[in-house]
Amino acid sequence: MSTLERVQSALAAIGAKPLASREGTPFFSIEPAHVREACRILRDVCGFETNTFVTAIDHFPAEPRFELVWQFLSVQHNDRVRLSARVSGEQPHVDTIGDLFPGTQYSERECFDMFGIVFDGHQSHAGGLKRLLMPEGYDHFPLRKDFPHQGIEPDKLYNAWFKQRFERHEAEHADV
């Protein structure tokens, strides 16, 4: 039984549709609501112990705009499988799988940082869904297609920091 058939029959319950993938990795499209269920099936029934990555593709201006992609690896079967779900909106939500595959926590944080996708229920050692690469307080999601590559006010946080620091220094040395 090929990987495709094995996974397909297991995922049939949640209505996963096989997609064409260029290099032959089994690839399934699922509904965003079924993410956790699909991942649990892959882990417990099909033996995929490891999540390789969670990422997103921005298909702007097509709708639904974001395609989320999860890839899983089974060391036991030497197999890979990919799941895809389309979400849309300015702040798309999808369920976290961080509790099923703890290794996804960084991937989810990165995906949130770059695409602004909110993983509901995400809990990591950092205490929730936080930015990973960009500084705290950054306003934009840089890998979205409508984000200009030179950024929007890239020096905003630095300037705010510098101004605050300068004013604090002035206040401390007001008497001199």
């Binding site: 840089p142 984000f147 030179q150 510098f162």
Partner: peptide, 12 residues
Amino acid sequence: DSYSVVQGVDMI
């Protein structure tokens, strides 16, 4: 030429 890189340290 990117959103994350200071375009010359003479900016700071």
